[in-house]
Design a protein around this nucleic acid. Structure first.
Length: 283
DNA sequence: GGCCAGGACCTTA
DNA sequence: TAAGGTCATGGC
């Protein structure tokens, strides 16, 4: 952990918002106030002091890759300002301005959001942590002696079997996770090919997997494949649409960055309801 | 002890 | 196409 890079001009970058807005389940706040976790097979620690952002555990030669992970080439300020036409969305942006959409590993995103269905975030994180501990590989042991693991490969999940998933307390999702890993492994689902698809086509393609409906497919498209117009509708977003809007599920109202709008709204509404103010995630 | 959680699937009408 | 029941699990 001696090597590190500093992100250049890190606007709209608040680690607590990025990692606690519900898009990723593998990062936790450390005692020193940084956020740490494994992404793309590496253990990294994200530190923000003042306006500077340091990524520990990453060498200069990997800069491009991690700038992509944090979506540094997208102008979030401009996108936020483009939401001025909508009062609710403007307020949400003002509050959630530090969120950036991470470019997470495709397979990890797919499996994680299958596990997320009809589940709550703390428990999702717990199941995924156990999944990685049991079927991933050790990547790094921190100063407290905690070992951090990589996300399992499709092969290791298939080898573990549906029963292996069930033992991780996934419940009815165990078969779904197994089906997803199987289809990725035997190339029934070729994740790389999703990049060349339009969003609607990508959603339809991902929904061939058992247990992947419109919502899980949308999260996978947005957080794993950079489909910014994907608009996941969970129970929270559904409530938001009913409360502030009259568009029941028509994401086109929010434009080409509907997915980012959705994250602002999701985070905002949850914070207003006090959900993210619970003991483990004080913002 | 019922309700809810970043839902999806199956059956019924 | 729409509505309702069911599926595991755990926190509250």
């Amino acid at each position: 952990m001696t090597e590190a890079i500093e992100l250049l001009s890190p606007e709209n970058f608040e680690p607590n918002m990025i990692f606690d807005c519900g898009q990723c389940f593998r990062f936790d706040k450390t005692p020193s106030g940084t956020y740490a976790g494994v992404a793309k097979g590496k253990y990294i620690e994200v530190e923000k002091t003042g306006e500077r952002v340091i990524i520990h555990g990453v060498s200069e030669s990997e800069r491009e890759r991690w700038e992509d992970f944090f979506d540094m080439s997208l102008d979030y300020s401009a996108i936020g300002e483009s939401f001025a036409y909508d009062k609710t969305l403007s307020e949400a942006y003002k509050y959630s301005h530090g969120i950036r959409i991470l470019h997470q590993d495709e397979f990890e995103t797919l499996i994680s959001f299958i596990i997320s269905q009809n589940n709550n975030i703390p428990r999702i994180k717990g199941i995924i942590a156990n999944l990685c501990k049991k079927y991933g590989k050790p990547v790094f042991t921190d100063a407290s002696g905690n070992t951090h693991y990589s996300f399992p490969t499709p092969q290791s999940i298939v080898d573990a079997g549906e029963q292996g998933m069930r033992e991780l307390k996934m419940g009815f999702r165990a078969g779904y996770v197994f089906d997803a890993a199987s289809k990725v492994l035997d190339k029934t689902i070729d994740l790389e090919s999703v990049y060349s698809m339009q969003t609607q086509e990508a959603l339809k393609y991902l929904m061939q997997i058992k247990g992947v409906g419109l919502k899980v497919a949308s999260c996978t498209a947005l957080f794993g494949f950079r489909k910014y117009d994907a608009f996941p509708i969970d129970v929270w977003v559904k409530r938001i649409l009913e409360k502030y809007y009259d568009v029941k599920g028509d994401a086109s109202y929010f434009g080409q960055y509907a997915g980012i709008a959705q994250q602002y709204l999701f985070f905002y509404e949850r914070c207003m309801s006090g959900v993210f103010l619970s003991k483990q995630n004080e913002i």
